[in-house]
Design a protein around this nucleic acid. Structure first.
Lengths: 351, 351
DNA sequence: AGGCGCGTTGTTATCGTTACCAATGCACGC
DNA sequence: GCGTGCATTGGTAACGATAACAACGCGCCT
């Protein structure tokens, strides 16, 4: 007798989704019975179960998960993910790994781009909390203010940092072995006799940039060589600025003989700059070693070695750590740190 | 006096998030006043507003969006997105465009990988509906059964197809101009004198594959040339199988003189096969024209032209169309079809 | 001075779902 | 034959937030 509101008259754009109530009426049972059928069907006569299932199919009924998760003890089944830039293929792989493991554990992911902006990141996290995500996987932007990342600000929602860490925030973290990878790459260059090695990287507030520069310096120290500070260029966040920085290095009176680029954006920029220069005057070849691989790296027109690692696996690992926390396998344990190994792939060039 | 349940004793892992009730107690007002402050603060004395705001800050309170969206007339602020494979940089760009526009309209995106699997796609959509997404953006998998994509099955939730269409399902759709792009590329190859042109593509149940093959055939027809059917290879979904198919073509007694590859996975595979072959015997150069661009396409070791278009813009456009439906600017209008233009970039090679 | 109206605050009921308890009906055992 | 127990079903309340309505107090006007 309250059909008016649901059927005609009101005529909202999206015809109100059917509820247990609707299904119950259709099947001639109580809402409670419908609910029981939907959650396993124990203690329901087969005949009624069949009627309910028919009604569900007929009405295309889907349980309202928002209403369900409102009930105490119930989880939302959502995981919030903030990434600094999804268009970067590296993070696309990361997201794929997260999604894969999340789906295996019946969780969906809410994804937001922080765009390396701490304020956007804060808003995203606040919104995710408001939607009662069960956990968060964050690629932290390189901001200075980290208040919004503190467990207190998150209302105790478990968080895992992926790919980057944040000094002063103690949570589960999955990193690649930045220091060792950068150090190994640089050591290789030094062993080849290079002494003027350029460094291209993110701005240093970005954790990985910091660590990779650290490895770069450590390698020099161990080899008894000195870092040529004029050749250290940081702050390039995208391909264009990296290409620009590399072009400047090449234009120096005494250009570097080798380059270590600390992430795939900088590597691609360096390749572009080197390839472009080559179109003009042919100077001596520049030796290039990059952190992160990328598609077609082995077909780069510029001879190249890379510190390779698996972004998708990193994503899987991060999601696994989060799910462990959620499923209580590791309740109040202290934060864990996992560093995934890297592989040096040298002198890629298949042609 | 019901503090027990909330504070100690029960001791759930995640200490129950604060509610309006908690804030109200903290501020010494009624929940209603808290609610009013949170939604604009009209009709609240400044002093009370301040008290409430202080309590909110102190408790790190975030409104429970799930509870809010339960109220009639309220929207969830969620948009469901299914993508066939996020690891493909093309779709990563698409997602970025969607996210960007969604964020501008205060919407978040729930993302799932369908992995080209119609059954997974069905599950994803069902789950999204259960979470009461306001709308859906779908890159449809190339399945035959499309029941789950019919508006009826979606409970009237607006949907937009991105990048691909589905015959028999009438909804807003954003495509690239596949037919024209493929036709223009093929026409170029024919004008260059090629008569043995290979085609590499998806399996034909994938809409774009179909359309691009259509353009390929149309160009031949218009030029009075005949499609060499032995050189048409479809069904390659990833780089490996594309490389394999291209290698087979190259190994033919009478190999193609040109190749049109219908998507970036096939183009990359073709490049790999051609580059690898070149490492051995140097046969005649193969002319390559690909649909979709990709990073470093201009630095490919194999001379290459591409039919280029902007995946991110496609994502933005899809999101805009969806938001228009949601905001009622286009209530019951018939489905719209937008075809984004393509640009031919010929003979890329910067070095 | 009394009444009216407005601005402010609180109370109640509801969104969809389900845990908990009550009620019903049936079969079985003594 | 009647009580007990189990399986099945339904009623009620609560999750968190907030529209709608009610109540309150104050200032102003007549």
């Amino acid at each position: 007798m309250d059909e008016r509101a649901r059927t005609g008259a009101g005529r909202r754009r999206t015809p109100a989704a059917p509820t247990v109530q609707d299904v119950a009426v259709e099947a001639g049972v109580s809402p409670m019975t419908v609910s029981r059928v939907l959650s396993g069907g124990q203690h329901v006569r087969p005949e009624l179960r069949a009627r309910v299932e028919a009604a569900v199919a007929k009405l295309d009924y889907h349980r309202n998960e928002n209403a369900r998760s409102l009930r105490p003890g119930h989880r939302s089944g959502l995981i919030g993910v903030t990434i600094t830039n999804i268009a970067n293929p590296y993070y696309a792989g990361l997201q794929r790994g997260i999604e894969e493991v999340a789906a295996q554990h019946a969780r969906r992911i809410l994804v937001g781009n922080s765009n390396e902006d701490p304020e956007l990141e804060r808003q995203l996290l606040g919104d995710f909390i408001g939607r009662r995500v069960e956990g968060l996987i964050v690629v932290p932007s390189g901001g200075v203010d980290v208040q919004h990342l503190q467990p207190a600000a998150l209302g105790g929602v478990p968080m895992v940092f992926a790919s980057r860490s944040v000094p002063g925030v103690e949570v589960d973290t999955v990193l690649v072995d930045d220091v060792r990878g950068a150090q190994a790459a640089t050591t290789t260059l030094l062993a080849e006799g290079h002494r003027r090695i350029a460094f291209l990287g993110h701005r240093l507030s970005v954790f990985t940039g910091q660590r990779r520069l650290e490895g770069f310096r450590a390698a020099h120290r161990l080899a008894g060589a000195e870092v040529v500070e004029d050749l250290v260029r940081v702050g390039q966040q995208d391909v264009e600025s990296a290409q620009q920085a590399m072009a400047e290095l090449l234009a120096l009176a005494d250009p570097p003989t080798a380059v270590f680029s600390a992430n795939n954006r900088n590597t691609v920029g360096a390749i572009r700059a080197i390839a472009r220069r080559r179109a003009g005057i042919d100077g001596p070849e520049v030796r290039l070693f990059g952190f992160d691989s990328f598609e077609l790296a082995d077909l780069s027109p510029v001879a190249l070695s890379v510190v390779d690692h698996d972004a998708t696996e990193l994503g899987r690992q991060a999601a696994r750590m989060l799910v462990e926390r959620l499923d209580g396998l590791a309740p109040e344990e202290p934060p864990r740190l996992v560093e995934l190994p890297v592989v040096l792939r040298e002198h890629l060039r298949a042609w």
